[in-house]
Design a binder for these strands. Structure first.
Lengths: 254, 254
DNA sequence: AGATGTGAATACGTTCACAGCC
DNA sequence: GGCTGTGAACGTATTCACATCT
């Protein structure tokens, strides 16, 4: 196993920034929409709006892939779809296993967006013997005893973990030992993996907590604004927060 | 991040970097684990390991909150739990609505991590009349006709969207008009919201595509390595012009 | 001694603004 | 004229390394 960190060599032409990679799927989705509506070309401005980013960022992102646009015209939709798909590795298809077929695992198995784009659910795996053989999303659940064989028989390199947190690390270890090198973790645990294995995590609870932080801050600002509104002490406004017309949402519930 | 420009005013003492905010829930989870095991104090090194980050980053993060540690000793676990909870706004509890009770919505409703920390499912809402009245996770599903009333009666400011993509924007608009200012979006769509409303998105498909990108790159490197090992044929199909060396970036701290 | 807290250095990401091409 | 592609400027995040305190 490649143990050494190969010390990123200020990579030459193939060094696409991580932030850009994370946005490519967004562009691809927007482009797919345009493609379905048979739109032939699109400007950076239009595409950026559809993807929810600004156009300078989009152009910079595309510049890492190459020069796929035409000045004065824009981008050819089909061509870009192909180029981005290729860059993301979606021209081949990726067999995926989901481990842990509870509510969430089942929901993911049923999720349409899975198959739509290069991914195929190769197997559903659960530790509960009572689950084995049951059909979920048209696929028979298999017992986790056979995990290693399933992985290697299907050439799976991407695993999705939707188990309870207590067993996520064990499952992860087995997946990695069996040859999986990319893991999408829905269990609220930090997974330890060897070098060369990528882990991405999705955590509902974390997302909500981040939202709560901002909610609280909004509430605080509102309160501060109200405080300012009444007394107005001799001291000047001290440029504290932004002006009165700032950011409190225009939507005031009746 | 929100689509709107929230005019960040270089806020004085309350300016906690976004990247730090995103890690606070991670620290909190690690600390909660220690707390349950009655560990009284923890060093930045230990806590960082448990949270899957490095210790310098953790200390820097905490320095934005204040000086809650003791030099030569470490951090008091209970005290830190409290401080971070307060900072994140988890000392109050947040009523949340989930709109779209399909597989995923139901899975989230059943998700334990929801209630565990400051969040309470105030209502489940679905547009299908056949769903209305059904119990999911012990809560009766309500029809979306009453959305506005549900929001205002319960003082809901956080909404979770698990509808099909086609209706996500409409649902979002109604939530916002009814007073919701934070949205967690599971639908694969870009949501447009007014200033002052935060949107965070969770998208399975995007995460998989990011993993596929890195998978592909690993495969390319392996191939390149093999090519080096074996004498290459005179003319090779140079479809994959992978850089000579390069390395797999540590995408996510694991 | 041992660990925190933090300026300074570095790396990464975004935005600006305009040259270059259609 | 219009739009891309990109160096340069700016801003944010991470890491280093050490002064500071118990």
């Amino acid at each position: 196993m490649a143990t050494g960190r190969t010390h990123r060599p200020a990579t030459r032409s193939r060094g696409i920034p991580e932030a850009t990679v994370a946005r490519l799927p967004l562009y691809l989705r927007a482009l797919t929409g345009l493609s379905e509506r048979s739109v032939p070309t699109v400007s950076s401005e239009e595409l950026a709006a559809a993807a929810g980013v600004n156009s300078a960022k989009l152009r910079k992102d595309f510049s890492y892939l190459g020069s796929y646009g035409t000045r004065g015209v824009g981008y050819d939709v089909e061509y870009l779809v192909y180029q981005i798909s290729r860059e993301l590795g979606l021209t081949q298809d990726w067999p995926v296993v989901i481990v842990g077929i509870g509510n969430l695992g089942a929901a993911l198995a049923n999720y349409g967006g899975f198959a739509s784009r290069g991914f195929r659910v190769a197997a559903l795996i659960d530790a509960d013997p009572a689950m084995a053989g049951k059909q979920v999303a048209g696929i028979a659940v298999q017992h986790s005893d056979g995990l290693e064989k399933i992985i290697s028989d299907n050439g799976v390199s991407i695993g999705v973990i939707t188990t309870p947190p207590g067993v996520a690390q064990q499952v992860c270890d087995r997946l990695v030992a069996a040859g999986v090198t990319s893991i999408l973790n829905f269990a609220p645990t930090v997974l330890a993996v060897p070098d060369g294995v990528d882990v991405r995590k999705v955590d509902l609870s974390i997302e909500l907590q981040i939202l709560a932080f901002h909610e609280q801050r909004k509430a605080g600002e509102e309160a501060a604004a109200n405080e300012n509104a009444v007394p107005a002490p001799a001291a000047r406004a001290d440029s504290t927060e932004q002006g009165p017309d700032g950011d409190v949402p225009a939507v005031m519930p009746a």
